[in-house]
Structures are given as C-alpha cells and as structure tokens.
Amino acid sequence: MIADAAALPRLTLRSAPNRLRGFLAGRIASATDKETVMRLLILLSLLWAMPALAFDLDDLQHRLAATPDLQGRFVQQRHLADLDTDLTSRGRFRYQRDTRVVWILEQPVEDRMVFTPEDAGRLSEADGERGNDDRRRQQAATLLMNLLDGDWQALETRFAITLDGDAEAWQATLEPRQDALRRYLSRIRLAGGRYVERLAMHAANGDVLTVRFSDQRPLDDAR
C-alpha cells in the first residue's frame, strides 16, 4: 500500500472512459436522430398492426401481442428547410413481426432497406450493405424489437407521449424529454384510424420528414 498510487494507474487502469467520451459521443449523437426516425418507423409498424381503438398505452401494449404482419405502400416527403425544397419518394413496405421491416423504394431510385432486430441480424437475407452502417442498423433493429415487445416504458423515458382523438381518427404526439435529443428533433406526430396513416417528424433545423401510408393490409402468407 506504500506506493500503489504510483504503480496502479498505469498498471491496471485503461483508458476506456476517456476514449468513450470522444468518439462514442459523436457516434451516439449521430445515431440519435437516425435512431429517432427508426423509432418512429417502428412505432409505426407497431401501430399498423394495431386496430386503433385504444388510447391508453397499456391497452395498446396488449394489442401488440396480436399484431399481424402488414404490407402496403408509402409516399415519403422530405422537406429541406434551408433549400425550401421537397424530396419525394415512393415505394412499398412489408412488416413481419419479430423478424424485419422491409422498405422498398421504387421512385426516384430503387433501393431495398431491411431492418432486423440485432439478434436476428444473421437471418437477414438482404444484408448487402454491411460495415459502416452496422451500428445504426443494429440500434434501429434492436429498437424495433423493443417496440414490438411493447416496451412503452422505454419510449416514455425519452418522449412525452400524448394521445388524442378516438379510435377512428387519432393522433399521437411525441416530444423529446432530453435536451440532447431536442437539439435534433422537436417533435413527432402520428395520425391514423385503423392503421397509422401519417407520420411527421420535425427536425430541430426545420426539416420535416412526412410519410403517408396507403393500401395497408395483412401480409400474404407467401412471404
């Protein structure tokens, strides 16, 4: 115990916390807003599956257990505030409970994005774009699992959630609780009836991402 102050720090303690603060901070920051969008997508997929009758989050959670798989079409509009321009894209989506959300972009470019929960990552067939996107992908997918499990508590730690309207025409507003998140995202709006019909995400910089869903129906057995 005589000179442990001299011997210990460099003998045994490593730099983890220090290094974390540097790069991880950035990674997490950049992941946060993407993750938020994903959260939305996921929240969405969960609401698709839900006949929108209940306006109590607990009820909602119960109904999730019976969520069927869904498919349909989407129109996505990204408003870029600093250019005062809209980027519009269209396509189809497929949602398979516990497995994946597939986002099939048809216009103006063709692309196929697959979001899977982390543990099912290896199952994903369309896993072409690995590498740099892994972390983001996994986070989003893990959140998907979280939400599909109906973990509203997790969402509520970050968002103040208000639910308005009735089963035929309802609207949910999510507002970030933490400043760190609020710096990227001012609020999220969801609206729908039997399924989610509209999602709007308002970024702090004025950009708005709006997604409208149509032709929603349970997924064919032939997946």
Binding site: F23, R27, S30, V37, M38, L41, W103, M113, V211
Partner: peptide, 25 residues
C-alpha cells in the same frame, strides 16, 4: 431518400463526414 438518414444536400451531399466518423468507429 432513406427514412433513416438526415441528409444535408448542400453541406455534405455525399455524407462524407458520416463515412469518416463511421470509419473511426
């Protein structure tokens, strides 16, 4: 056009900084 990205068409249309940061991750 990805719903998960937050593009900056003027500042960084190719998302170079995100790629640089990701490569350091």
């Amino acid at each position: 056009f990805s719903p998960t990205a937050s593009p900056q068409p003027v500042a960084d249309p190719f998302g170079l900084l995100d790629r640089w940061l990701a490569a350091r991750d």
